[in-house]
Nucleic acid binder design. Structure first.
Length: 98
DNA sequence: TGTCCGCGGGTGT
DNA sequence: ACACCCGCGGACA
């Protein structure tokens, strides 16, 4: 399942799980960790997403902390995730009206 | 709220 | 092989 780049099994599991998060919705790092059967690996999940090799195809901004805060993005703490999510939600709302 | 420690996995040396 | 790093989480004060 991979002629692409050198990614570990773990990475693939994390990235795959992340792509299943619907547009405009969010999941926690813990959710991803549980999803791939490693509920304790939340920090590793964070690292995997940070090193996200395909930012355009993998909505890593939909993964936030389980306490509702946004965590980091692009290697720092910014409001980028918040903005992207607000955009997605507004898009979803618009789509529903069509 | 703010700190502190445990956790699994990746990367550099 | 080893040490150090991390976009977290849960407990506790």
């Amino acid at each position: 399942m991979n002629t692409a780049h050198k990614l570990t099994k773990f990475q693939w599991q994390v990235l795959k799980a992340t792509t299943t998060i619907p547009l405009g919705q969010t999941r926690s790092y813990q959710w991803v960790a549980r999803k791939i059967g490693k509920p304790k690996a939340v920090r590793a999940v964070g690292q995997a997403l940070r090193r996200n090799p395909y930012p355009l195809t993998i909505p890593c901004h939909r993964v936030i902390k389980s306490d509702g805060s946004f965590g980091g993005y692009e290697g720092k703490y910014s409001n980028k995730k918040k903005q992207l999510l607000e955009l997605e939600r507004s898009l979803v709302t618009s789509f529903k009206k069509l």
